[in-house]
Amino acid sequence: MNNAAARAAGLVAIAFAGLTTGSGITTAGLHQAMTVSAALLVAVASAAGIRTAAVVS
């Protein structure tokens, strides 16, 4: 399962890299791709780390 998830995530990352860098590979495009990647990493890490508190009776 982990191998399949890692492969799928890699394919999605490569597909979106072309969208974020633009039509050509430039310094500005790479900076934009790094910014988008960092924002997505923070969003996913935040979503994984936020959990509802357990109800203690």
Rank of each mutant, 00 (worst) to 15 (best):
L11R: 05
S23A: 15
S46T: 12
S46E: 01
I14G: 01
A54L: 07
V56L: 12
A5G: 00
A38T: 15
A33G: 04
M1Q: 07
H31S: 10
I14H: 05
A13K: 02
S37A: 14
F16R: 11
G18T: 02
G22A: 13
H31Q: 14
M34L: 13
A43W: 05
S46R: 10
A9F: 01
A47P: 00
M34R: 06
T26D: 11
S46L: 12
T26L: 10
A5L: 13
V55A: 15
V42M: 11
R7A: 01
G18D: 04
V55C: 04
A28D: 12
N2D: 12
V44N: 05
R7F: 01
R51T: 12
G29W: 08
G29F: 09
V42P: 01
V42T: 12
V42R: 04
V12C: 00
G10P: 03
S37K: 03
S37T: 13
A48R: 15
L11H: 06
R51V: 11
Q32V: 01
G24E: 15
T52R: 15
A13V: 02
S57M: 09
H31R: 12
L40N: 02
A5Q: 15
T27I: 13
L11C: 04
A4D: 10
A53P: 06
L30E: 09
N2P: 07
T52D: 09
A43F: 11
S57N: 13
S23D: 14
L19A: 09
I14D: 06
M1L: 13
Q32G: 07
S23Q: 14
A6W: 04
A13C: 02
G49K: 02
G49V: 00
A15T: 06
G29I: 06
M34W: 07
L41I: 03
R7T: 01
M1F: 09
